[in-house]
Design a protein around this nucleic acid. Structure first.
Lengths: 378, 378
DNA sequence: TCTGCCTGATTAATCGTTTAATCAGAAAAG
DNA sequence: CTTTTCTGATTAAACGATTAATCAGGCAGA
């Protein structure tokens, strides 16, 4: 039994065929001038010997590592798995690896993480910035995934449009007093979503915004948000800017005996993993992460792998991925947590009650499987 | 204004000081014989020039890339953020980068992902295997995070002990009929957790196990699990093997008008992100992921960076991280979703009503528009 | 027949670091 | 005064791929 053979290199293939290593390189890459027959023989013996090119050596020579960095504000974020998965898939499809870096929500750590990635020689990076921060111009192609209102080059979901979709959905269901549930005022993403919600609800709808972090500053983490009182005071819908907040609202309302969606509606954002399996399943809006990841990675690759272009032009744009901001539409997913407006207010009940009664019996059944973009009729 | 200077290399430092590149290398690494004064000067100019060592070149020369791979069965898993974060932190602390690979729940993709990592020259990898799979002996140090009952070298939480903790907790609260809620029968982790639960509950407690996937095979994804009926038939506690299932159970029960924890208790596993913020906050059991990550990474590093050891011995163990299986204790987190056993059984009490009457008066008032149990009328 | 072009391959330099081998000079030992 | 030892540094060879420059022939045109 032979010893474990080290993975053979190009010289091994070259020696086996009696040619030079350069010829092997040319044959495998198809770049130089090699006769077709020899190229075929090279490929055959490469396969036979189990040749695996050393990406390290290639990186040293070419200056490109074939690795992209992914910087995330907080890996604990429940949306992170989807982002990471989408980015990893898009990168892998183009032959790139993905190195992760966690900035732990800290700005200093974020820049430190970015530096670590640069030292590791990534060819480019995708950054989901901590809210409120901008990414400085580092000497490396960067694609930012945030929100279109962030200045700079970003690819992102169209959070505003997503908010509009939810807003229109609720307005069409007859809701006239809606409580918007946000987490943190300084998040650009959340601001966009709330702006879109207000726009989608229209002028005839009364909106208030409740900020969870403000309440928790007083009541401690995980404290009650007082949503039942809000419901009793006439709000018939609770539109959260994240499924996590929506879940919190849903359970708090259910716990207080307020039925969802018969009494109030609850909607979220992002279609996180639990959204389809809670009862009632959450109506939410979904980011098209595969597309976003493809755009971000594609923009990076376009800078990293220059094709036939003027050198001056590419050099100038070398560290900025693209001049335009891409916004990818979000998709409304109607499930059971949203329904026609009812009211817990004794004095306002007269108008809302009929809607509840005229609802087709199969309404929820129809809506539970199809994530339709169009709003359901009532 | 000078042109953008390329990051200087060792030769630049050497030239600036009039010494050889080898001396610079020795000075910075502290390995060869360099006079202390010169070493200090080298460090100073290195800092002054903004020298950043090329990890690529070092990797090529030493054969070690300083990168570890992380293979995950399904990045969509809600536990993933915590695992990735813990692994990334542990690796970064030791100067290693982390390359992620998603096996998308597929066995073929898993091996393919592992191969991609090997081609990229990772020094070792941490694998969270898809349930039911074993990791073949690849020519690369591997640490497996799974469950102690998986054969092979694994680091993991002590799922059995975690189950015991929950089981004892429920038993002490007086629960005598407990429904265990699992997802998938073939998961070793889930089997361990269920085994631990049964052990912790003890012999005097009646247990049934409900498998969500089995139910969904018939009812479709997200279908009702019929837990309210289970509650009415006498189960007073629902112990899920994951917080996701627990959340599903919690909302389904709440929706059916069954109060948690007054009527039934619900517990989960893993302390996922929503567990503290739902109402009632979930009683669960938490993995000590930082410790698990430290153990896994530490075991890898021990193989990768051999210290003063016999060569034969290390060569033999080169691809297997350690012979012993580490199991890290889990920590019970008691929150509001578990409480003293009540009963909805008509024969155990006058009926469902009494339990309901022990609730705060406001609770019942808020629910008066709804029938006590069963689906809401629309 | 000689020059020039084209093809198919080789040579050798290069990326930046590590490290074994070597070397010059000074101090210590004989 | 010579020999040995030790110190502090240098030289040069890797690591494995890429690639510009070069070269040996074959073939066609003049």
């Amino acid at each position: 039994m032979a010893v474990v053979r080290q993975s053979p290199n190009m010289s091994a293939i070259a020696a086996a065929l009696g040619v030079s290593a350069a010829t092997v390189s040319n044959a495998l890459s198809g770049k130089g001038r090699v006769s077709p027959e020899l190229a075929e023989k090279v490929r055959a013996t490469a396969a036979a010997l189990g040749y695996v090119p050393s990406l390290t050596a290639r990186a040293l020579r070419t200056g490109r590592s074939g690795v992209l960095g992914l910087v995330l504000p907080d890996i604990g974020n429940p949306l992170f798995p989807q982002i990471a998965q989408a980015i990893e898939n898009a990168a892998a499809a183009l032959g790139y690896g993905v190195l992760i870096a966690d900035s732990r929500g800290d700005i200093a750590t974020q820049t430190e993480a970015i530096n670590r990635l640069i030292e590791r020689g990534v060819d480019g990076m995708v950054v989901v910035p901590r809210r409120g921060t901008r990414i400085a111009d580092i000497g490396c192609p960067v694609a930012v995934i945030d929100t279109p209102s962030t200045p700079g080059n970003t690819v992102s979901a169209d959070h505003w449009q997503g908010g509009e979709a939810i807003g229109r959905h609720l307005a069409q269901l007859g809701h006239r007093r809606v409580l918007l549930v946000g987490n943190n005022k300084s998040s650009n993403v959340q601001s966009d979503r709330i702006g879109g919600l207000r726009a989608g609800l229209g002028l005839g709808v009364h909106c208030d915004t409740l900020w969870i972090e403000t309440i928790e500053d007083a009541g401690g983490p995980g404290c009650p948000l007082g949503l039942a009182d809000k419901a009793r005071s006439g709000f018939t819908a609770f539109a959260a800017v994240s499924d996590l907040s929506a879940l919190r609202a849903l359970t708090e309302l259910q716990r207080a005996g307020i039925g969802v969606p018969e009494m109030v509606s609850v909607t979220g954002f992002d279609d996180l993993i639990w959204s389809p399996v809670v009862t009632p399943a959450l109506t939410t809006v979904r980011m098209d992460l595969p597309t976003i990841a493809d755009l971000a990675i594609g923009a990076l690759i376009r800078v990293i792998e220059p094709e036939a272009e003027g050198e001056a032009a590419t050099a100038a744009a070398a560290t900025r991925v693209s001049c335009l901001t891409d916004r990818v539409p979000m998709q409304l997913v109607v499930r059971q947590s949203s329904g026609p407006a009812s009211s817990l207010l004794p004095d306002a009940a007269a108008g809302a009650e009929p809607a509840l009664l005229t609802l087709p019996k199969s309404w929820h059944a129809k809506n539970q499987t199809q994530p339709t973009a169009g709003e359901p009729k009532i």
